[in-house]
Design a binder for these strands. Structure first.
Length: 687
DNA sequence: GGAACTCGAATCCACGTCCG
DNA sequence: CGGACGTGGATTCGAGTTCC
C-alpha cells in the first residue's frame, strides 16, 4: 500500500516542479506567458497576489519553452530566497522575544547604511559570510529535511489517516522526524537543475559585468544583516559586492552539486559579521581627500577618471544634480505627472554623466545626452526598462542588426521632456546662484517635419457621418443589446453615454467634464450653465487659469434630458455628476477619466470610426471649435466657451467676479448657433 | 519661438470572469 | 484546471496650451 502513496506524492511533487508546466499562450497576440501559483508558505510575501504571470515575449513555442525553463529556475530561486529570509526573520523574532521575556516586539527600522564607507575587506568578509549561509542552509535541509520533504511527509500521514478511517482502524499519526530525513527526490532534482543552470550562466554574467542575476538576492542578504542600502544600488561598492556574490554563489552551487553526487563538502565557517548600522565609518573622510576622483554613473560603472578640480568637489556651494533636483521639487511643487516626467529625464541624465556637482556640468554633457536620446526607443521593452541609457542604446543597436525595428523618441519629446526638464532644473540652479549660465541652453534637436508632415494636424474633428455612426450604435440606442454594456451597471452606461454628448455640445476637455460636481450645474440670468473651475477642497486642477469658465448648456443637451440626468444624480445623493468614474492614484491622482478614455478608444475602434491617432476623444473639442467657426461665431466667444486665452490685453478688462468676459446670454446665443442638427442622438435615459 | 508645464492616448500587464 | 476575453491600473509618450 505504502509504495503507491509515496508514488502519488512523488508524482504530485514532480508535477509542481516540472519546468515547462508554467507555459501558457494568451490573448490574440499569441505570445507565450509564464504563469505560476505562489506557494502557500510564502504567500504573505506577494500578498495580495496569488500567482505570478508575465509575458515571455515570444510567439515561438521552442523559444518560449527555453525561456520558461530559465524563468522557472529563477522564480524557484526567488521563492527559496523568500523562504530563507522568512525563516531568518522568524528566528530573529523568536530570539528577541526570548530575550525580552514577553511578546514579540517590532524591531526598529535599520538606519540607512553608507555602503561606500564600508572598507573593502569588510565587503570581502560579507561575501564569505554569504557562501557560508548558502551552504549552511543546504546542510540544514539535508539533516532536518527540506520543506518539500516535510510537506510530502504530512501528505503521506494524511493519506494514511484517511485510509485507516475508511477501514475503521485506529491510526496514530507520527510526528515529522527532525533528523536524518534528508532531501526528497523532487528537491534533489530541483537543486541539481538550479545548480547546473547557475553554473552555466554565472560565468557569462561575471564576464559581462551584469549583476541583475544577483541584485535582489544581494539586497535581501544585506537587509538580513541590518544593512539597508536600497538607495545605493548604483554605487560602486554595491556593484563590487554583487560581482563577488555571483562568484560565491557559483562556488556554493558547485559544492552543492558535489554534495548531490555523494561527496562530503564541509560548510566553511562564518566570517565574523560587523555591525555597520549607523553608516558613518571612520574611513569615510578619506575619499574626499583623494587626489583622483572617479565618476561613477547610475550603473556603478566608472565613466571617467580625472584629476580633482574645484568644480568636481561637491560642496554646499556646489551641490550635486540630485540635490538641485530635490530643491527644485521643494520650491516649485510641480503637478504629480510633471514630477514623473522630470524624474525619468533626470535619472537618465545622471545615469549617463553621473551625479555631477552642478558646476561640473558642461554643454558637452548635454550633447552626449541628446545623442543618446536620439537613439532611444519609445515604450521600452520590459526587459530593458531598468537598464541604463547606454545599455538600452546598445540593446537597440543589437536588435536592429538582427532586423528588429524600433520607433525612436520624437524630437519634440526629446526637446520638451528630456532636455526641457534638465533645462528647467538647471535654470533653478542659476536662479539660486550656484552657476552663472545654464549649460543646457541652446541644446536641442532640430525638428523633423517629416514625422507628421508639415501641416498635418495631430487631432482631427469628427465628421458628421462619423458622429452619426458613433451615436447610433447599439450602445447609444436604449433598448438594444450591446456587448459594450454587458458588464456595465445602468449608472455606468448613463455616464458613458453622457460624457461624449456633453463633450460634443460644450467642447470641453474630457477631464474637465469628468470631474464636474452635481453642484457645478448652475443657473444665472436665466441661463443654465456648467461651471468649470479649480477647487482647492478636492485638489482639482485645471490645465491653466483661463480654463476657468462658465459654459452655457446647449439647448440640444436640454432636449436630450441632461437636466433630468443631473436631477437623478442629485436625488441619488451623488457629489460627482459622473458618479461611476473612479479617482486614480499615484501620478494620475485626481484623474477620473482614464478608464473611460480607454473604453472610448476601444469602442470607436470596434465600430470603425477611429483611424490612427487623429480621431480621439479630443476630436470632440475640435468638432465643437469647427462647428462654432462655421456658424460664424466670433473667435473670442469661442475661446471663452472653450477656455482658451484671448491674447488681447483689453480682453482682461470688463470681466465679472468670476473672470468671465461675456454675459451668459451672449455665450448661450453663440453656442446655440452650432446646432449640430444633422447629428442624430438618442435620449441616453432608458436601459 | 522657446520654456514650462498639463493632459489625453497608448501600451503593458494584472486580474476577474466565463466557458469548455 | 486551462485558456480566452474583458476591464482597469500603472506607466510612458507626445500633443496641446499658456506665458514670456
Amino acid at each position: 500500500m505504502l509504495p503507491s502513496v509515496t508514488q502519488s506524492c512523488y508524482t504530485r511533487g514532480m508535477r509542481a516542479l516540472s519546468l515547462c508546466n508554467h507555459l501558457q499562450r494568451r490573448g490574440s497576440s499569441g505570445n507565450y506567458y509564464f504563469r505560476v501559483r505562489i506557494p502557500s508558505d510564502i504567500l504573505e510575501v506577494y500578498a495580495p497576489k496569488k500567482e505570478i504571470v508575465f509575458s515571455l515575449k515570444t510567439k515561438d513555442p521552442k523559444e518560449a519553452k527555453a525561456r520558461c525553463r530559465v524563468e522557472a529556475v529563477r522564480i524557484d530561486q526567488e521563492f527559496d530566497e523568500h523562504r530563507r529570509r522568512l525563516e531568518l526573520e522568524r528566528q530573529q523574532q523568536e530570539q528577541l522575544a526570548q530575550a525580552q521575556g514577553v511578546g514579540v516586539a517590532s524591531s526598529p527600522a535599520a538606519p540607512l547604511t553608507d555602503l561606500d564607507s564600508i572598507p573593502d575587506y569588510e565587503l570581502d568578509r560579507l561575501a564569505v559570510l554569504y557562501l557560508h549561509e548558502v551552504l549552511a542552509h543546504d546542510e540544514q535541509e539535508r539533516t532536518a529535511g527540506s520543506s518539500e520533504a516535510r510537506k510530502e511527509w504530512e501528505e503521506n500521514q494524511e493519506f494514511l489517516r484517511q485510509l485507516h478511517e475508511q477501514k475503521g482502524m485506529p491510526f496514530t499519526p507520527e510526528s515529522f522526524p527532525t533528523h536524518g530525513v534528508g532531501l526528497s527526490p523532487s528537491t534533489i532534482q530541483r537543486k541539481r537543475e538550479r545548480a547546473r543552470l547557475f553554473l552555466q550562466a554565472g560565468g557569462s554574467y561575471l564576464a559581462s559585468g551584469d549583476i541583475s542575476i544577483i541584485h535582489d538576492r544581494a539586497l535581501a542578504f544585506l537587509a538580513a544583516h541590518d544593512l539597508k542600502v536600497e538607495d545605493q544600488v548604483g554605487s560602486l561598492a554595491f556593484r563590487r559586492l554583487c560581482l563577488s556574490l555571483i562568484q560565491k554563489e557559483m562556488d556554493a552551487q558547485e559544492a552543492i552539486l558535489k554534495r548531490l553526487d555523494g561527496q562530503w563538502i564541509p560548510t566553511p565557517p562564518a566570517s565574523q559579521s560587523v555591525a555597520y548600522s549607523g553608516s558613518q565609518s571612520a574611513t569615510a573622510g578619506l575619499v574626499i581627500g583623494a587626489p583622483v576622483v572617479l565618476q561613477v554613473n547610475g550603473q556603478g560603472q566608472i565613466v571617467q577618471a580625472q584629476t580633482q578640480e574645484a568644480s568636481m568637489i561637491p560642496s554646499e556651494d556646489n551641490p550635486c544634480l540630485s540635490t538641485i533636483w530635490e530643491s527644485y521639487l521643494k520650491e516649485r511643487k510641480p503637478a504629480p505627472s510633471t514630477i514623473k516626467n522630470f524624474e525619468g529625464a533626470v535619472r537618465r541624465f545622471i545615469e549617463l554623466v553621473g551625479d555631477l556637482p552642478v558646476k561640473a556640468v558642461t554643454k558637452s554633457h548635454f550633447r552626449q545626452y541628446k545623442d543618446a536620446l536620439l537613439k532611444f526607443p519609445v515604450r521600452l521593452p520590459h526587459s530593458v526598462r531598468k537598464k541604463s541609457i547606454q545599455q538600452v542604446v546598445a540593446f537597440v543597436e543589437k536588435e536592429r542588426q538582427k532586423g528588429t525595428a524600433f520607433e525612436l523618441l520624437n524630437s519634440k519629446t526629446i526637446n520638451n521632456k528630456y532636455l526641457g526638464a534638465l533645462k528647467a532644473i538647471l535654470a533653478h540652479a542659476v536662479d539660486n546662484g550656484f552657476i552663472d549660465d545654464n549649460p543646457a541652453n541652446q541644446i536641442r534637436v532640430t525638428h523633423d517635419a517629416d514625422k507628421h508632415g508639415d501641416n498635418e494636424p495631430a487631432t482631427l474633428p469628427y465628421t458628421e457621418e462619423e458622429l452619426n455612426v458613433l451615436f447610433s450604435s447599439s450602445f447609444f440606442v436604449p433598448g438594444q443589446e450591446c456587448k459594450f454594456k454587458k458588464r456595465m451597471k445602468r449608472d455606468a452606461v448613463l455616464d458613458y453615454r453622457w460624457l461624449p454628448i456633453v463633450a460634443l455640445f460644450t467642447g470641453a476637455r474630457l477631464e474637465e467634464i469628468g470631474q464636474l460636481d452635481v453642484a457645478d450645474v448652475m443657473e444665472e440670468d436665466g441661463v443654465k450653465f456648467l461651471f468649470i473651475h479649480a477647487d482647492q477642497s478636492t485638489e482639482r486642477r485645471l490645465k491653466n487659469k483661463s480654463s476657468r469658465r462658465k459654459v452655457p448648456i446647449h439647448p440640444r443637451l436640454v432636449e436630450l434630458g441632461f437636466l433630468e440626468f443631473v436631477k437623478l444624480r442629485s436625488k441619488q445623493g451623488a457629489i460627482k455628476l459622473f458618479s461611476t468614474l473612479k479617482e486614480m492614484g499615484g501620478a494620475r491622482k485626481d484623474k477620473r477619466t482614464d478608464a473611460f478614455s480607454k473604453w472610448w478608444r476601444r469602442y470607436t475602434e470596434a465600430i470603425g470610426v477611429k483611424t490612427g491617432k487623429q480621431k480621439t476623444f479630443h476630436s470632440f473639442r475640435h468638432t465643437s471649435k469647427r462647428a462654432l467657426r462655421n456658424a460664424g461665431v466670433d473667435p473670442s466667444l469661442t475661446d471663452a466657451i472653450h477656455g482658451h486665452t484671448n491674447k488681447s490685453i483689453s480682453a482682461h478688462y470688463g470681466r465679472d467676479k468670476d473672470g468671465m468676459g461675456y454675459a451668459l446670454p451672449v455665450l448661450l446665443e453663440a453656442i446655440s448657433r452650432a446646432t449640430m442638427d444633422r447629428v442624430i442622438i438618442h435620449n441616453p435615459e432608458g436601459n
